[in-house]
Design a binder for these strands. Structure first.
Lengths: 221, 221, 221, 221
DNA sequence: AATGAATGAGGATTCATTCAT
DNA sequence: TATGAATGAATCCTCATTCAT
């Protein structure tokens, strides 16, 4: 993004002259705008999000919005990017803790990680799961899903869980279907209908196990 | 729909002035407007659809639109409803032709019927698969899917394909996932990516077979 | 323009049902908007003319402006067109009254006719003489001047005042120079500096007489 | 101009720190900004010239623009002033080379000098001939023309070319008409339509010769 | 002197919808 | 029923200019 955090280390313990340096202030403002946009998206949906509302809500002049973002779309994009980065981190973290790796646990762990982030980031549910109307966000989401699919595919391949017939397209289909499961689950229940999510995990697992190795199926030698 | 007209029977035996009765003329106009809207949706997407465009495209004054539809949303709704009715008919017709009824053939036949209608009705892809932005359309689609899920569930139950554990929620999940498969397939390819659709059929089948009776799995006694 | 005056003749003396028919009301509104725009142009110049100001000044919603005019430029254009039509009429009228036709009287009469209209239409001075910044108005003015040049050239040719060497380009140059004379004269004096105008007439006359026939010079046979 | 700096003579004999003194650096920057503005004016016209564009084009922060110029208008003004100074120099130079001085050669030489500068300084054509939209530039141009008229009048008087009836107003009219000739000529042709310019010279000459002495007319005693 | 950041004040245009007739 | 006309309410975005540092 346009605002890089300035190095704030102060090893000599000296007091900084200005408590809030300019760059830091910008970064905070950007975050604040993003938070506001997130809140509004949750409140009224992506479609009805206006620059006016965001600016007003953030207590910032509309013109200032355009200091930090090229246009309205860029705000949405930044918002989605922020959340997706969070999601990636969560997936990585949770997968690291898995001991008995199979297709089933891989799917379950990943989807649970998603769920954790959806709970943490309500706006993401609106923007990404619901309001896929915005072309840029949609595109961004698609690309992110491809990235996730690729990562999981490599992971599964490296761990010897999947047979070579499992292509990227299939992995992507699984990820996208997972998205839809969450979409449906969150439409039903603000916390994500647990039954639907469980069934979704079952569906994706059943699908991917068609391409699993014996190890991927959890067979013990 | 909005063209419900009062009964115009004439008890006094008087002859109507015009050969084309008002009701019929209205119906035609509504259809024409709907066709125009469908064309425009395909051309420029749901977001950029304006009442002006619809009216102008249909050769009808904008104000007259409001004679037939409560508001813009109602036009979209009517359009989706028309297409969904078409879809229901197609599913019924295609299912009637199936001889070896199993979970697999049920899923395949239904999804193929969907595909047939998506091909026939391009605007439907835009409105229903892509641009679920419109809240009313979204809601309408959801309800339609519930209807489809219920029908299929009853059908499968009556034919002894599914065990009682298969609930409406699960059937609905299957239908919704099917939707997403088509969404993805049509984003990739204007005719619907065939590989993705085949995989989608496989996924839904694999999922539902978890709840199948031996007959549902195609076992012969 | 977009609003045609409806036939209002009433030979039978009957009272019209509605005093102000729709079309007539529109025409009046257009005129009113034009008048307002003219006033504002005189007040603050072409550059600082905004749709908001026009609408506000005319007591009309901004959106209504766009019922009558395609965009801001169209307002300026309509204004210039209205004034130019007036100018053409004035030239025709004044030339009709000339008895001793020579190059000198032709130039003088025409320029005096212009002056009459500039006096009558102050906004025209701003839009046309001063604020030639607007591309559309400029283009329009250029074309109008070509029209005037052509008319005068034909007139002079038919009356045997000019030799064939006088081309349209030269006539146009004379007209354009006349424009500049007025521009300067009106910058000096709100009523147009009389001395400058007199000198301008002399200059254009001196120029055109280079291409005059003996008759054009006022020689009596 | 705005880079008037205080006298920096150092009475204490101290050596200046930097080899390129601030004043010189400023001057260079001003010139660079002016060059950029000139380029942009030619590219996109006076109307669409923004401070952002100028600053960005010159590789200078927008805020720094305001170190050298009071406001945007001042930039345009400085640009026009620079070009006008160039023009004055050209006129002086070219007139110095004239041997047979008459009203005709005076006019021709001066207008040719103008043409030379217009060719050299394309932005000037935009700013001064075309886009007289900016009030300050307009005013500045007017005053410059008065200066030129005065100079030429004195020149013609001293050389005994003109009779005393020729006033400053008349000389100014001639100069202004010359301007319009160029304006028209450059609208027609990016290099200035030669026929129109030739005719313009003829017109101004014909006009001024009305006030010429026999010597001014080129009569040999 | 130099500048990154901030902003007040608009700018043109669009749109769904409603009346008056 | 039909519709030409009217409009309130927004929309996104830009720009010249000014601070604070």
């Amino acid at each position: 993004m346009s605002v890089e955090r300035v190095n704030e280390d102060r090893r000599d313990g000296s007091r900084p002259r200005r408590r809030v340096p300019t760059q830091e202030r910008s970064r905070r403002r950007v975050e604040h705008i993003l938070d506001t946009a997130a809140r509004l998206v949750v409140q009224k949906g992506v479609e009805d999000l206006t620059t006016r509302d965001i600016a007003f809500g953030a207590g910032v002049p509309v013109a200032s919005l355009y200091q930090y973002f090229a246009d309205k779309e860029a705000v949405l994009l930044a918002l989605a990017a922020r959340d997706m980065a969070d999601m990636d981190a969560q997936v990585v973290e949770d997968l690291a803790g898995v001991t008995d790796l199979t297709v089933a646990t891989l799917v379950r762990t990943t989807m649970r990680a998603f769920l954790t982030v959806y709970h943490r980031r309500r706006a993401f549910v609106e923007i990404y799961l619901r309001g896929r109307s915005n072309a840029a966000v949609n595109q961004f989401g698609r690309e992110h899903n491809v990235g996730i699919a690729r990562t999981l595919l490599e992971y599964a391949g490296a761990a010897g869980l999947a047979r070579p017939e499992l292509t990227l397209d299939m992995a992507l289909l699984a990820v996208e279907v997972g998205d839809r499961v969450f979409q449906l689950a969150f439409e039903r229940d603000p916390d994500g209908d647990p039954v639907l999510i469980e069934e979704g995990i079952a569906m994706v697992t059943a699908y991917l196990e068609r391409y699993a190795t014996p190890a991927g199926l959890g067979a013990t030698p």
